[in-house]
Nucleic acid binder design. Structure first.
Length: 153
DNA sequence: GCCAACGTTGGC
DNA sequence: GCCAACGTTGGC
């Protein structure tokens, strides 16, 4: 099983929103970056991901989700009304993908970005590397466990 | 293929 | 709101 980290702005869609969805499941649409899309494509059903809150007062890891459906076309790309509209994508030739995620659990507390940066075990983590803007990224097993340990400490 | 201009992300 | 870092676009 692989591990991932997925960013979302809690003002738009936070972990509380996921929790309130039917079956605590939602599709993860709106990814419009090729590298992030390729990571979506690499996700397998059963993989787990950290739900990261970005662009907010307290950025950090807020919870854990499970990939319950692997990548499939993101229809918001060909919806002219959608803020994610991209005319390069069409139903017969989709460019952008999404997955379905289900809430596993909220963390007992949000593990804040500044804490992650201060943890030597996460020095090489993609998230804390300078100017990282990827909204979907892989997390190594070591990093995954180090963050879960921070929740317990 | 290079690279300047531009738009976006996201922490602060 | 600012702005650094990054990805993308488009002229050449």
């Amino acid at each position: 099983m692989n591990h991932w980290l997925m960013k979302s702005e809690p003002d738009v869609f936070g972990i509380a929103d996921l929790k309130s969805r039917p079956n605590q499941t939602e599709h993860w649409d709106g990814v419009r970056n090729y590298q992030a899309r390729n990571f979506l494509r690499a996700m397998q059903r059963g993989d787990e991901a950290f739900f990261y809150h970005s662009s907010c007062a307290n950025p950090g890891v807020a919870g854990i989700v499970r990939i319950v459906r692997s990548a499939y076309p993101d229809p918001s790309a060909w919806d002219p009304e959608s803020p994610f509209h991209d005319p390069r994508s069409a139903p017969e030739k989709p460019v952008w993908l999404m997955v379905d995620v289900k809430l596993v659990r909220e963390l007992k507390r949000v593990i804040l970005l500044h804490e992650l940066k201060a943890n030597a075990a996460l020095k090489n983590m993609r998230l804390v590397s300078r100017g990282s803007r990827l909204s979907v990224m892989p997390v190594t097993a070591k990093e995954w466990n180090a963050i879960l340990k921070m929740e317990r400490d």
